[in-house]
Simulated scan of single mutants.
Amino acid sequence: MRYELVIFDNDGVLVDSEPLSNTILAAYLTELGHPTSYEDSLRDYMGGAVHRVHDTVLERTGRRLPEGFDEEFHARVFAAFARELEVVAGVPDMLAKLVAEGVPYCVASSGSHERIRVGHHKTGLDRWFPEGRVFSAQDVGRGKPAPDLFLHAAERMGVAPEHCAVVEDSPLGVRAARAAGMDVYGFTAMTPATKLGTATGYFDDMGQLLGLLA
Rank of each mutant, 00 (worst) to 15 (best):
P104T: 07
R142T: 10
E101K: 13
I24L: 12
A154I: 09
T198N: 15
G102K: 07
L5C: 14
G211H: 02
M157D: 10
L172G: 01
E131H: 09
V57W: 05
R127M: 07
R175T: 08
V99M: 13
F203S: 03
R156S: 06
G111R: 06
T188F: 02
T188N: 04
G211E: 04
E67M: 13
K144G: 00
A108C: 05
G158F: 15
L65F: 11
D93Q: 15
A154Q: 12
A165D: 02
P66A: 07
K122D: 02
R117W: 06
D148A: 13
R175Q: 07
M206E: 00
G48L: 10
Q138R: 00
D9R: 09
M1P: 15
P104V: 11
V6Y: 05
T30I: 03
T191Y: 05
Y3E: 11
E131W: 00
A27D: 14
T23M: 05
V50A: 02
T56N: 03
T23N: 01
V140F: 01
T200N: 14
A79E: 10
R175M: 14
V99E: 12
E84F: 09
R133L: 13
F8G: 08
A154T: 11
A214S: 10
P161I: 03
E71S: 08
P171N: 09
E155S: 14
F73C: 10
D204A: 14
E71R: 14
G186F: 06
L95Y: 13
M94F: 07
D40F: 14
L58G: 12
R115T: 13
V167P: 03
L32I: 05
F129T: 01
L125Y: 02
E72M: 10
T123D: 01
L98P: 07
G47I: 10
V103Y: 06
G186L: 04
G132Y: 06
A180R: 02
G12K: 12
E4P: 11
A165E: 10
G132N: 04
M46Y: 14
V15R: 00
E72P: 03
Q138L: 04
P104H: 00
P147E: 00
A199L: 03
T36H: 11
V174A: 03
L149T: 04
G141S: 10
F150A: 09
T23I: 08
P130T: 02
W128M: 06
P171L: 06
D55Y: 03
H163S: 07
H54M: 13
E162C: 10
